[in-house]
Design a protein around this nucleic acid. Sequence first.
DNA 1: CGATAGTTTGACACAGCTCAATAGGCGTGG
DNA 2: CCACGCCTATTGAGCTGTGTCAAACTATCG
Lengths: 242, 242
Amino acid sequence: MTIHQKVAQSEIPLFCQGCKVRVEGICGALNPSQLTALSKQSHRRIIDAGTELIGERQVSHTISTVLYGVVRLTKTLSDGRQQIVGLQFAPDFVGQPLAAESSLSADAATEILICSFPRSVVERLAQDLPDVGRRFLSQALKELDQARDWMVTLGRRTALEKVASFLLLITRNMNRSGGEHVGELRFELPLTRCDIADFLGLTNETVSRQLTRLKSEGAIRIENSRHIIVDDLPRLEAQAGR
Amino acid sequence: MTIHQKVAQSEIPLFCQGCKVRVEGICGALNPSQLTALSKQSHRRIIDAGTELIGERQVSHTISTVLYGVVRLTKTLSDGRQQIVGLQFAPDFVGQPLAAESSLSADAATEILICSFPRSVVERLAQDLPDVGRRFLSQALKELDQARDWMVTLGRRTALEKVASFLLLITRNMNRSGGEHVGELRFELPLTRCDIADFLGLTNETVSRQLTRLKSEGAIRIENSRHIIVDDLPRLEAQAGR
DNA sequence: CGATAGTTTGACACAGCTCAATAGGCGTGG
DNA sequence: CCACGCCTATTGAGCTGTGTCAAACTATCG
């Protein structure tokens, strides 16, 4: 590490040092002094799995960056039918940049660590710094693309293909750190069978059946029902229905 | 009309006068001189139904505003299964503001009138004028919200509810001008039965059956198979499954 | 060690798909 | 003006994938 880098790092607020998503997330668009200003208005906290962050049709005055864990975005029909419309992993953010009122509810799917800012502060930043605004637009477009990809899965894939696609999605997002993985891939599912069903537009029974089918065909192994090992990634990809 | 308004209008480039979507669309964020500059780089054209505007995985250097008609955004799996992931009505725009390469294909569902700008010009505008950037973000968030609403429909509604929801969507977007409509609502469907099926994750046969079911239950009338009359809006809304 | 929540498995029903035949709308050409 | 052909929509009959309901199994925690 050069002296210059040391100085640059020392300017980063203590609060943000060691934050794994600082570079990728919204904060990546800020210089050290802006980061210091923002860090004074933000606070970080651990939240239990199952806790609701924002309710449907509820006004929220904070925007949060996910540092660890998975947040589940759901929509619910009046008769109780539910659909998960998005999963937020680090370094995604939760909360709407323009509208205060949410049209969906956000829950902690797993235990999560988030860093929250007042909406007003973030909006001022977005107004003053084009780079911040562009990051918001960029995340919105990324989420839009993901949502549309998922629409194809919901509308046109079979149950087996849906479950395989879901496992691939999780594989990609839970193992983001390491780069290329050769051989076996293993991870903890961040969702219950019911959640997976709500994400895929299926029932938990069907999800369970398709998982055992993938297991019996040798693509995956299941331990503890939450812990999955992908033995044959190409086969799983084929079963997802390119 | 006051004198001031007359002067203001006279400053608007001839090209843009009479453009119905000028205020709502992206152009609404521009003052007359900016509008004049942009209008010199834009051109308007009528495009036949069925014409492809942007292909999947294709680079596009223009961004267009829809002035009239309906544009269909689709994703296709390698085996030919198709899903319509969005419909663009006036004054929505077509084309990605940040990425050049599209992850979906855009077709004219009906005959359309669009106004196209070079991507580079629009991006410079977005960079220089916070308002333009905010309009892009705002449309992206609107589309994200629509996509997520549609995910609920795809994943959790029955065929009847899907078709009813589709008719409501069209009703809202084809009759946007008039405000409150009492009594009968009538419109031309911008999509064939196959397109509707691709939008709803169904087959054309199922779409057809559910339409006749809605007809026989008295919610709608069908003339010419494209021309629909909504007799009982509340019933249609009930059948969409709030 | 029992209680509770989540998961798997089975048997059966039915919504929606597939395949196939018929009907309707519209343009072209005789 | 009617006849023909093409394309789209409708209707029918049977099949299948996924949902429903119910029971057995597993893990976790007090």
